[in-house]
Structure formats: C-alpha cells, structure tokens
Design a protein around this nucleic acid. Sequence first.
DNA 1: CTCCGCCTTGACGCCCACGTCAAGTCCAGT
DNA 2: ACTGGACTTGACGTGGGCGTCAAGGCGGAG
Lengths: 123, 123
Amino acid sequence: MRIGELARRGGTTTRALRYYESLGLLTARRTANGQREYDEHDLRLVAEIRSLTGIGFALEDTRPFVECLRDGHTSGDACPASVAVYRRKLAELDECIARLEGARERVRAQLDQAEQRSRPCRR
Amino acid sequence: MRIGELARRGGTTTRALRYYESLGLLTARRTANGQREYDEHDLRLVAEIRSLTGIGFALEDTRPFVECLRDGHTSGDACPASVAVYRRKLAELDECIARLEGARERVRAQLDQAEQRSRPCRR
DNA sequence: CTCCGCCTTGACGCCCACGTCAAGTCCAGT
DNA sequence: ACTGGACTTGACGTGGGCGTCAAGGCGGAG
C-alpha cells in the first residue's frame, strides 16, 4: 500500500504521514521508483498515533506507544514507558482542568458582579 | 511615566506593551524626543489586560474591557460588550473543561486496562 | 569625552502539527 | 502520444504572544 491509501485508511493525510516519518514515528520501505510502501502493521501504527493525538496527546507522547508496537507487543500501552506517559498525561489533565475550573469560577464571579451592578433594581 | 516604569508597575515587559499598542489596545502620547509617555490611567488599562489574560483571555477578548475603561467607566466590565465576552468565555471554558474531562476519563480507562493486563495476578 | 541606562523601530525566532504551493517524476489508461 | 492521478522533495505559511537581537538616539553622571 502506498501513502495515499494509508492516509485514507488511517483517517489522515499524506502530509501528516510524511511528517510522522520526519519525526521517526513512522518508517517506510521504498519501491524501485522511490515511493513509500506500507503494510498493515504500519496502518496499526498510524491508528495508534491518531487515536492518541485524538485524545490530546502530543506527537512526541505517542512515541513510546509506537515503539512498543514495533517491539512486537499487540498493544501500544503494554510497555512501562507508555504507562508512564498515561500517568503523566493524567496529571497534566488534572492540573489543566483545575486551572480552567479556577478560571471559570473567576469569570463567573466577575459576570455575577457585573450583572448585579447593571441591574441593581432586581435585587 | 515612560514605558519601562509602566512595564515594571504593570508586571509585564516593554515588549508586551509595545505589542499591545500595535494591536490598538494601548495608546501613548509622545515626548519631544519621541518617547512614549503614560499616566495612571494607562496603568489601569495594563492592569485590566494583565488581569484578563491571566485568567486565560486572549488579547482580542480584552479589547471591550479596555474600551469600556477608556469610555470613562470605572470598571472594565461595566459595558454590555464586556459582559458578552464573559458569557462567551464561560461557555468556552465549560466546553473545554468537558472535553478535557472526557479525555481524562479515556486516559484513565486506558491506564486501568493497561495496568490490569500487566498485573493480572492481583485480580 | 565617555559611559550607562533608557528609549526607538524593524525584523526574525519560537512552538506545534501540519496546510499549501511549487516543480518535477512515474505509471496506467485511452 | 497524451492525459490524469499519485507520488517525490523542498520550502514557506498559520496562529498567539511575545523573546531577542540589531543598530542606533538621547540625556545625565563622572
């Protein structure tokens, strides 16, 4: 399978796939005329990458998962490095959510205050 | 007061202040030799901008507040446009938080699953 | 005079995950 | 032979909020 088909089947674009390759996340054999040649295993890698970035992972964060799959594991998160990324991401998400909730509260307080000032008659 | 002092007192940098000016958020009189000259009212504007961006507002979102202050209101959120931004931001925050919580749940589920696979003996 | 610190404008760099364009190669179909 | 589609590499653009450097001006202290 060539890059176009992999992109379609992986739900992404050829540009993204070449970018992943430039990061070393994906590698490709070449045909005689220089075109990239992929197989089902590569599709699995792409699926893993897309799945993780879909959750909000940075591309670099998908690296352990990809390497884990390349090491022959059937699941990208079968390796400790991947699990560590899960934990780190979880902590990041918790912190980010807390920050946003704090911001939300501040905005709400400001909004309430502003509305009270603009409509003092309603008590 | 010149730009350096305004930056110090406003808790930011001269670069940022010039940037705000390039966006039209801040304006400055000039002294005879071309230097920017500010007063306490400008400091108030900077404080408003920093306060809002500190919560997570984009600079463009602070514009109504700044204009509101420039219109003579004692509070940047005394104008309907500012309140509208509050509402919009609140909705954005809610959506963002919901997204992150969804992501968090997915990561947690993945993590739990991965841990269960790696330590099946603990049941 | 020199030096220091503050100021000026202009312009490029950064981060990230690609989009988009350019210019060319290669192959299959008609 | 020609056309269309898929492929190649290279390089610049995007967005946001500035950081950082370049190259120079201006005023006061010593």
